[in-house]
Amino acid sequence: MLDRKDILGIEELGRDEIETILSTAASFKEVSTREIKKVPTLRGKTVINLFYEPSTRTRTSFEIAAKRMSADAINISVSASSIKKGETLKDTALNLEAMAPDCIVVRHGSAGTPRMLAGYLDCSVINAGDGAHEHPSQALLDIFTVKERLGRIEGLHVVIVGDIAHSRVARSNIHGFTKMGARVTVCGPPTMIPPGIESLGCSVTHEMEGAVEDADVIMMLRIQLERQTKALFPSIREYSRLYGLDAGKLKRAKEGVIILHPGPINRGVEISPEVADGPWSLILDQVTNGVAVRMALFYLLLGGARE
């Protein structure tokens, strides 16, 4: 059904492949509603979560997904491993592969790391976020969540607000939503919009009010305080006033607009509490759907015969 060994980015996926992942995820969502939230499908398979950056949501989501498929999941985080002792990435990966895992889920601060590993390793590699490049499983669960609520992606207008330049979530979602036939606009202060981003097929605005008015989906990005090496805006208060989503700005939005956020949210910075907790917010649906989408990825990569 999915003729590939790895999931490295949305950019390389075709629309039909995205559709396959979405429909498979829809089936897996049912498993998580059962009293026994487990199917024996991937019994005997081993999944290693190799995380070089902190993560709670994504790592837990992959781990739960693997366990609900009956695969064994092992987590390796940077602070508890030989990486601290100076082992190179390639050596770490080859050592892990010597233990015969079937899939390595990797998050790394440098773009391209998952692709490099995929080249060395015979097992499947899933990119769980590489630098500012891609975070494909996040985009897939975002698309799934929107499709589940609005029934379609084709023809929708998706506005992504925040630090586009540093955001792998934005990049994967631009690729994903445009491939599925939506129109994407990115919005943020000029310092946070990388030059040439239009070449990915989206449009750019620096003015939030207008963007919100015309949106079917508003995706707020987290202000990544830990990635901010130079000041991209004068103050958090100013950013919040201009680009934070609150009830006031939302009043101008269309009826039925939905709000996404990849989490973790900075309450009162990019999103106000009443918006994050309001009826238009699908933030927790995203988390629920993340497990189903990742179960689908494991099934599609590991559930078939290997040539």
Binding site: M1, L2, S23, T24, S27, F28, E30, V31, V39, P40, T41, L42, Y299, L300, L302, G303, G304, A305, R306
Partner: peptide, 21 residues
């Protein structure tokens, strides 16, 4: 009741599409 995820030939042939449960 879809039996796909419980089959004993998973991994022996190509991945099968899931059906309605």
């Amino acid at each position: 009741v879809d039996a796909t995820l419980y089959r004993d030939d998973i991994g022996l042939k190509e991945t099968q599409p899931l059906k309605k449960m």
